[in-house]
């Protein structure tokens, strides 16, 4: 097995909003080219943790390093693709205009821009709906467009906050296949989810509950350690113990 570069490291990160402690002493390393899943029930702190990673939010204590650089830093913004939990799209513009706007923000112009737009829209299978207004899109289509926007500038790290909510199983399958393709091209993908069967598709998993990381490991490791057949059972063992 070749040596894998460490690309994200989270050291003793805690976050609290006023008196409410949301994250408690989180230590985590994520390696290049893997799909890392953050699994936890709603309100566990998944989104908060992801926001520390992207530099959207500052931890109360502890540090986050991306490619050995301390976050938050503007230099790394172009190497992160972030898809938020709620769609941030301009509903009164068409999908193409949305993509054009975001690609211009990333500095993509002319032929590069058109090429990337076709590529990402093919990936999420929205090429036929390129000129439709986003307000006429279905929920799943909006999710996919958000995903396309996150991938526009070919980031090295793709952080996806619940990417497959509201997407049907067939499409979910194809999106995961796309993730595998991206992974093979060396992109690190971090996915948060609360769907257990989706978690099994990740290379490694971090289980979060009440702001604490209760387990880290590959799906097989986690299952073996708890003598359980599914990730769901494993989660219950870690969480209930």
């Amino acid at each position: 097995m070749q040596k894998i570069e460490e690309c994200i490291s989270i050291n003793h990160v805690s976050k609290s909003f006023g008196k409410q402690q949301v994250l408690e002493d989180i230590n985590l390393k994520i390696f290049e080219g893997e799909i890392f899943g953050l699994l936890g029930p709603s309100g566990a702190g998944k989104t908060t943790l992801v926001k520390q990673l992207t530099g959207l939010d500052l931890p109360t204590s502890g540090e986050v390093y991306l490619f050995q650089k301390k976050m938050p830093t503007l230099k790394l913004i172009n190497s992160i693709g972030y898809m938020a939990q709620s769609d941030a799209l301009y509903e009164d513009l068409t999908a193409k205009e949305n993509l054009q706007f975001f690609s211009e923000l990333y500095g993509l112009k002319g032929k590069d821009q058109t090429r990337r737009i076709t590529e990402v829209m093919d990936l999420v299978q929205l090429s036929d709906d390129l000129t439709k207004l986003v307000s006429n899109y279905s929920g799943g289509m909006k999710r996919r467009l958000s995903l396309a926007i996150a991938m526009l500038h070919e980031p090295k790290i793709l952080i996806l906050d619940e990417p497959t909510v509201g997407i049907d199983p067939v499409l979910r399958q194809s999106i995961w296949e796309a993730f595998d393709l991206l992974k093979q091209s060396g992109i690190t993908i971090i996915v948060t989810t609360h769907v257990m069967d989706e978690a099994e598709k990740c290379d490694r998993l971090g289980m979060i509950r009440d702001g604490r990381l209760i387990a880290i490991g590959t799906t097989r490791e986690l299952k073996e350690q708890t003598n359980s057949k599914t990730i769901e059972e494993a989660f219950l063992v870690y969480g209930g113990a």
């Binding site: 009164d92 513009l93 205009e97 706007f101 211009e104 923000l105 500095g107």
Partner: peptide
């Protein structure tokens, strides 16, 4: 560059918004 992109987007939105 970003300012131009922003301006374009806002103008488009205004035109669309009846």
């Amino acid at each position: 560059m970003r300012v131009i992109a922003l301006t374009k987007r806002i103008l488009r939105q205004i035109v669309r918004d009846k």
